[in-house]
Nucleic acid binder design. Structure first.
Lengths: 201, 201, 201, 201
DNA sequence: GATGAATGAGTGTTCATTCAT
DNA sequence: GATGAATGAACACTCATTCAT
């Protein structure tokens, strides 16, 4: 019994190791330039064995997206402990800025994956990427709503759009300062909200 | 004499056809999923012949980025004919929105190319993509400056960042309405500027 | 004691399940397209466990051939209960025709396996397939001999050859009617025998 | 001009070399055990180059079947020069027997390919193999018809079925004498036809 | 004796790039 | 300068077989 549990645990751990490696390498190299061998090497797993856990490369991509979704959930779960919705949003922006070095180097994991996958004729794992981004938007909208800002969905769209834009620019220009500058602006924007009918962006 | 001119002209045309095809196909399929054979086919040029005009695939990618730069220049040149800088910026935003269907399908050409290229270890054609984006920012900054808005560079960053963000979201969610909504917001934002020292977006 | 007998019995049952599954799947898919995993799945046995019963895939193939030999023996044993040799042969032909749908879909199990295995450089399991076919020929020859037909071996060869030919054609043309037509002809041929020295086919 | 013709000719020759090699190797090793590398080696062509001429392995299989069809056409075209249909059929049988060594080693190319391909779920190149076999049957039927034998189609079926059966048995038993014996019987059978209402097989 | 997991050699296929004419 | 063909180094994926427990 202990044995089988151990083994099951080990297998689950390996799966997680592979998923984590996939998430990392796919973020760093993009989908098409990433080879299964590369992910396997990174995870310390022989190539052939990868296929015991994931039947195709696309499945690994999906798993990586799932990993990013889980990390997003962890992040928002942490933020949810803050009492004020506005503070949660502030903290979210600060989290984004704190990742500026990675973002400048590799872009936002979700954004860059979505951009690459979105061009496929069959939009297979692309929809998954979109769903995770929408999850972020939904969470943000919930905060705006709790905070009683009018048109919370529009504000969520603006916020997430701004995040994707600043991440892309930071990446394209290889300049983490973009994140700092735009992050600061977003914080000011948050502060300005509800101060009146509000000029949004 | 006439002959050699003809030939030179023909060659230049072929080069242009290849560049245009590269710009289109790379936008639609992304860099890694695009094959030289595909570009050649699209341009009506035999594969082997491509190498007479471009030594490597990367050079074709660079040429495609050059094509996008040229189109950007044409666009801004057209906008420059408008007398008021604010109207130029408004027209720019309207141009973005008018491309919403293509953007929802394939993303912003510059943004998606930059995202894909930016991950390469040797940032070879990535820098080119960044340069074109910066060119757009510079033009925008010039408008804000001409309009006498304080901190024109920050405003340009915000504007272009917003464009990249809304393009990415429209693409990721396959929803052109994102472009319409955020475009309208940007126009309101423009209108609100100079109404005072202004909390920007 | 009971335990060990049970276990021995269970093991024997598993072996039989595997052999039966192998016979079926190898018939339906051919040797090379059949995977051990597929046989194991069909038999309800974990893959790793197969190797406890069969050291190699080839051994499973041999076991499948043994299964077909056993079925052949059962068939002829049943036919042997008929008093007249000619009736036994008639019944054999009728048995062949009754299998026409399966044969049109997958060919004769022995014939198709022999055809596929016969090309191997080392004729390892090929000889086994040939031996089973010869067993059928021997039984047929025995009937012709008991029936006192001259040159029973030649007649057996003709009969079995006709069976293999009609099976292959029915399979190649995916037409079970081939079995019906040629089966009827074989029956007429049987009836014509002993009507004299006889022009055979 | 000469150049381009030369090149076109060379390319066609290479294609033919590949097709011939494929026909040979597929006959000797079967479809599944044959690797593209093996065919390429046999044809003296680098592996990658094979794909310039054939997009998939299946296409090569089809080409090999086409090769066998062409050889069949050549054979029957030669036989058609004989004035009497019965002599054409006799010569056909003699041709079969003369191939007995190859047949005993590798089986009938069409028959074994049809047997292997016929099991595929998607009957892709299987239909092609069946079509070539039917072509042989059609030719044989035409001879019986010209010879004014009643029910020429049934006789053609019997003849070709006999050929496939004897080939399979010769192969399964690795005994070319099967071809000799059954070939002689077929000749006697031919002679017996029209000598009366005829006992067929 | 049973079993999920591991392993690695191969297989078809793609594609940027080069070559010969 | 043009072009069909050649080349070879990947790559994703499969599978018989072995291993550890």
């Amino acid at each position: 019994m202990t044995n089988s549990v151990d083994r099951r645990t080990q297998a689950a751990q390996k799966r997680r190791r592979l998923t984590a490696a996939a998430a990392r390498v796919l973020h760093e190299q993009g989908v098409e330039r990433t080879t299964l061998a590369g992910i396997a090497r990174e995870a310390g797993v022989p190539v052939g064995n990868v296929y015991y856990y994931f039947k195709t490369k696309d499945e690994l991509v999906r798993a990586a997206l799932g990993e990013h979704r889980d990390r997003l959930d962890e992040l928002t779960a942490g933020l949810d402990r803050l009492p004020a919705p506005r503070d949660r949003l502030r903290a979210l922006i600060e989290a984004w800025v704190s990742e500026r070095e990675t973002t400048a180097r590799y872009g936002c994991p979700l954004g860059t994956l979505a951009a690459e996958l979105g061009k496929r004729a069959d939009g297979t794992p692309a929809a998954e990427a979109g769903a995770v981004i929408r999850r972020l938007m939904d969470w943000a909208a919930a905060q705006f709503r709790a905070w009683d800002v009018p048109d919370p969905d529009a504000h969520a769209l603006t916020l997430v759009s701004a995040y994707q834009g600043m991440s892309l620019l930071a990446h394209a220009l290889r300049d983490p300062a973009v994140m700092t500058r735009e992050g600061a602006r977003l914080l000011r924007w948050l502060d300005s909200l509800r101060a009146g009918p509000g000029v949004s962006p």
